[in-house]
Each structure stands twice: as C-alpha cells, then as structure tokens.
C-alpha cells in the first residue's frame, strides 16, 4: 500500500506516493527523476548513494523516505546555486577528481559537508571525511587536491564577500 509523503529535496517540495519499503535512493532516482544519486552496492558498502540530510552525509540506500519527511535533503542536483557551480564542483572538474564520475556525486556531498564543518581541513581530515566513499578510478589523490583547492577558493571568496564572483574565478 502506497503512502503519500512529502519530501523536501534541494529546496523543492515533492509530494509522492511511495511503497514503505522503497528506499530514499529508489524514490530519488525512480520517482523524482534525480538520477544524479548513484548506487554501487545497495548495502551501505560503497558510499555512492550519499546524500545530505540536514547537511549531514548519510546513505540513501539505507534510508526510508517515510522517516525523513522532516529533513532537508540535498542531492548532487542541489549543489548548484542559480546556475553557478559549487566551488567543489569546479575544482573536481578542473583538477581531474572525477574519472568515470560514478562515485563523484557521493564524494562531492561528503566533501561539501566536510568543508561546511571544517573550512580548512588537513589532508588527514579529508581522508577521514571521505573514508565512506569508495573510488575505483582515481586513487583518491586528485580528489584530495580538488577539496584543498576548493577550500582555498571558499576562503578567498569569504574574505572578499562583496565580490564573490570575481573571487571564485580560478
């Protein structure tokens, strides 16, 4: 029996009738068309399906939509603001942090949560924060570099708050 629920995803409200046993991953991808959230194992063993619940990274493959109606859900589609990429998206693209790109959405969401909490993470703190996201292509190095570069850009942008556009230029 489907239940009518309301989800708040990337600032938008979705009313959707779901079967209780559908995971948030399935509902995002199959009901809401938000296919940017990927799946690699569906058992909580890879991190590809990471989304943010009220800013906190969790696995959508192990989340029941019925339980998160009171949360703000952020997926990869929600990182752009008014058509402008998040600095992490820019640096991931520019510095080769995405190869096949399949782990990238989950990786980016973990990184967004990290920089919100810790704007200047050390390499070790980055490794800890990403330790739930497996990547099979990059060897992680370029991902660390991209996060460090984004942290730098965000801090420059923060200092020159009046001119964020100019400050965000590479």
């Amino acid at each position: 029996m489907r239940e009518l629920i309301t989800l708040r995803v990337n600032g938008e409200r979705y009313e959707v009738a779901v079967l209780p046993h559908r995971t948030l991953l399935e509902v995002l991808r199959e009901d809401l068309g938000l296919t940017g959230t990927k799946h690699g194992c569906e058992l909580g063993e890879c991190g590809a399906c990471t989304v943010l619940l009220d800013g906190v990274p969790v696995l959508s493959c192990l989340t029941l939509p019925l339980e998160v109606q009171d949360c703000e859900i952020t997926t990869i589609e929600g990182l752009e603001e008014q058509g402008r990429l998040h600095p992490l998206q820019e640096t991931f693209a520019e510095l080769g942090a995405a190869q096949c790109g399949y782990c990238t959405p989950g990786m980016l969401l973990s990184a967004v949560a990290l920089l919100r909490q810790n704007p200047h993470p050390t390499r070790e703190e980055i490794k800890q924060a990403l330790s739930g996201n497996l990547c099979r292509c990059t060897g992680y190095t370029k991902i660390y570099e991209a996060i460090e570069a984004a942290a730098e850009r965000l801090s420059v942008a923060h200092q020159g708050e009046r001119r964020p556009d100019a400050a965000l230029q590479p």
């Binding site: 296919t35 693209a93 995405a98 096949c100």
Partner: peptide, 19 residues
C-alpha cells in the same frame, strides 16, 4: 584541461545506463 564531460559528471547530469 578539464575532461569534456567533467561538468556533466560533477553536477549529476551524466547519464549512465541505469539512469
């Protein structure tokens, strides 16, 4: 240079078979 599909992958726009 960035890969030509870099921006589609970092924004979740890239379409994989299961998508």
């Amino acid at each position: 240079l960035p890969k030509v599909d870099a921006y589609s992958t970092v924004t979740g726009r890239a379409i994989y078979a299961d998508d």
